[in-house]
């Protein structure tokens, strides 16, 4: 029996250690989440306005004016997968990978597919799989910086402009709230050409007056748009990751507590049982002597 007791004590101790770690991770994630949340909320208006300007622009001008507007048959498709660099954040990474795999299975049958991977989890998953990976970016999700977004964007734009790609999609976790992340899969290139829903008085669908030659203007605008959308996706993903980790670690801490309670209870029962047995032995021994 005492051996068994020691075994339980050890287990309680090790669960306690794990609990300490998960609790610390939860607190760290919570503090990082705050900062990431502020950043993404501040960055959203710019990305949204940029998108609305782009949409408004894309229906006014002739797509032949710029390579990034070219609508080609979707033969060669690229998917940009934004995952985290680290695990221990619940289903955060697996959701992204599942949704990426669904997309790939739908697309890959009759199209050429390539990937750009952001975040180590995605890189590790696709390492052993047969898809062509054009770019990999690891260890950048811990400190999301506009520089990286520019680099990723440049790679994509180069391929697209050179007509090596016909369409680019982006899949990432969107930060909805601390406890909720939604997987978003959205087209990045070519820039969608929205038709006017109705001809309104205030917004006739006529071409712009340009202050610069349109080509120059678009050269400036379109790459910036791609960068901004990638940057936003990265910030969304960062905030979502911390949120997911916080929730996962909170659950883990609670589970650990439950486990400790269970183990302590069993441990005490065993101890009590052995004490009872000993007392009975002593009492019956004493009885035997007296008798």
């Amino acid at each position: 029996m005492p051996g068994n007791l020691i075994h339980f004590r050890r287990r309680v101790r090790s669960v306690k250690n794990i609990q300490q770690i998960t609790r610390a991770m939860k607190l760290v994630a919570a503090s990082k989440l705050k900062r990431a949340q502020d950043r993404i909320i501040a960055a959203r208006p710019y990305a949204n306005r940029m998108l609305s300007v782009l949409n408004s622009m894309a229906r006014r001008i002739d797509p032949a004016q710029h390579p990034l507007l070219a609508q080609r048959d979707r033969e060669r498709v690229m998917l940009v997968v934004v995952t985290g660099d680290r695990g221990l954040c619940g289903s955060f990474n697996s959701n992204i990978i599942r949704s990426a795999m669904n997309f790939i299975e739908d697309e890959a049958a009759n199209r050429t597919l390539s990937l750009t991977l952001v975040g180590r989890r995605g890189v590790e998953w696709f390492k052993t799989r047969p898809w062509q990976v054009r770019h990999e970016f690891v260890n950048i999700m811990t400190r999301v910086d506009h520089r990286y977004a520019r680099e990723i964007g440049k790679g994509i734009i180069d391929y697209f402009s050179a007509s090596e790609l016909d369409a680019v999609y982006l899949v990432y976790n969107e930060f909805k709230s601390v406890v909720r992340q939604d997987v978003i899969l959205e087209p990045l290139l070519p820039i969608r050409r929205l038709e006017f829903e109705q001809e309104s008085d205030t917004d006739p669908g006529v071409d712009y007056i340009y202050e610069q030659p349109p080509r120059e203007m678009l050269d400036f605008l379109l790459p910036r748009h791609v960068e901004t959308q990638i940057f936003r996706a990265m910030l969304e993903s960062e905030a979502a990751e911390h949120g997911a980790r916080m929730t996962a670690m909170d659950a883990a801490t609670r589970n650990a507590k439950e486990m400790i309670d269970q183990l302590t209870l069993t441990m005490n029962r065993i101890r009590q049982a052995s004490i009872t047995t000993e007392i009975i032995e002593i009492v019956s021994g004493a009885d035997a002597l007296e008798g």
Binding site: V206, D207, Y208, E211, Q212, M217, F220, L221
Partner: peptide
């Protein structure tokens, strides 16, 4: 501040895109 000089814009301006 448009690239080619300052632009004053009043309501009803024609669509314009400027750096």
């Amino acid at each position: 501040p448009g690239a080619e000089g300052y632009l004053g814009i009043l309501p009803g301006h024609a669509p314009l895109l400027s750096e």
